[in-house]
Amino acid sequence: MTERQRRVQPGRLRDPETGEWNRKEIWHYLRGWVAVAVALAVVFGGLWFVGTRAWDAWQEFRTAEDYEGEGAEQVQIQIPTGATMRQIGDLLAEADVVSSADTFVRVANSRSEDAARVQAGTYSMLTRMPAAAAFERLLDPAFQVRDMIQFREGQRLTEQVALMAEATGIPAEEFTEVVTNRIAELGLPEWAPADNAEGFLFPDTYELPTDRTALSVTRLATTHFSTVANELDFANQAAASPAENPYTALIMASVLEREANRQEDRYRVARVFYNRLAEGMPLQSDATIAYANNITGRVFTTDAERAIDSPYNTYLNTGLPPGPVTSPSRNALDAALHPAEGNWLYFVVVNLDTGETEFNDTYEAHQASVNKLQEWCQTQAPGRCQ
């Protein structure tokens, strides 16, 4: 074998004697490995592509049925009265709270006893929630958005109408129509007059209904009045009281609500007024004068206001006014039914800060109490007693 032949012997990368590289063999080997690497890259790239597409398809399938995670953005969902789980699921799916209404319904059906606890109302939810998490939120009162309205003790009907209109966005005229011309629909006691709803909207805090109307909102308070009246056995107790009938007792309670600063004093103020009625004396109630003049926020009235020509003017007229002047509290209703025992004919608040009130049998003693009030006004609260 010649020297040249030995150097180029196939399969040898280097000459064993000289150590020279066989460039032809090196290129042959490299070309083979490159081909293998390319083949492997094609295989693994294909596997990666197929795997990625398969994973994406699986995730798409999963999220088409249900979302994962904790949810995304805040959103409020309103569930109407009487909605079925299917209808609730549709509402949630439309708002993107759940991915599938079917999945939500399956969750609800698997927990049928809990599903019965889901109430109508507005709920704070998250978009893209798992169906089970959305269902749990509907069971948790902490996530229910409560729309409330509060009637305070001693408010008159016009104030309550304005409050209902503001709280609901329903025009005040619609509430006025209800309390003026639709009184028969308010569920009032049978002894209530057919033409006057004043005094029958019980002062309390109420949750506004989802499907609200002027009638449904007003009925929240009138229905509660009937409940309280039944609890007090108001009609029967009134018949046995100095009022002699429930509507007269309601009128008396409405006056007591504004005239007595402290609850414990209302029973004695009731006795003063009943005694004055028995004596044929005018009540001389500033609460009725305020009602006749449509004024609020003041304790005292002026001579001009007390001269108004109105059946509610208890300075000029004897007897009770023709109707309630406020919505009385439960305490005032009870005081009208159960006045304290006593011979008092007069009372006056002698300290507007504490509500301290003095009761007297004679006009002379009453004037002494009035002087005490005037002294307190001059030294403690100039301008408040105007």
Rank of each mutant, 00 (worst) to 15 (best):
Q386H: 08
N245M: 01
E70K: 08
A336C: 05
A165K: 06
D309C: 06
T318N: 11
E356K: 08
A229E: 10
G32I: 10
T222L: 09
D15V: 08
S100R: 03
F359K: 03
A134T: 04
L220Q: 12
D66H: 01
G355C: 12
N261Y: 10
Q263C: 00
V348D: 08
H366W: 07
A192Y: 09
G342H: 06
V118I: 15
Q87E: 15
T127H: 11
K372N: 14
L201D: 02
P171G: 03
V8A: 08
L277G: 05
S216R: 04
V348K: 07
N313G: 04
A83H: 08
G199S: 11
N360W: 07
M1P: 11
V98S: 05
Y67C: 06
E113A: 12
L345S: 01
L139E: 05
A239Q: 15
A381Q: 12
T354G: 10
R117T: 07
T2W: 13
D66R: 04
G355T: 06
A365P: 00
V272P: 07
Y363V: 11
G280V: 12
A194P: 00
Q76D: 13
T379K: 13
A335G: 01
R14E: 05
T158R: 11
E173G: 15
V178A: 04
Y206H: 13
G82S: 02
V178S: 06
G187A: 09
R12W: 10
A365S: 13
Q374V: 09
A83T: 11
L92S: 07
S112C: 00
E257P: 03
D204E: 15
V107E: 10
N230F: 00
D211T: 07
L186A: 02
F104T: 01
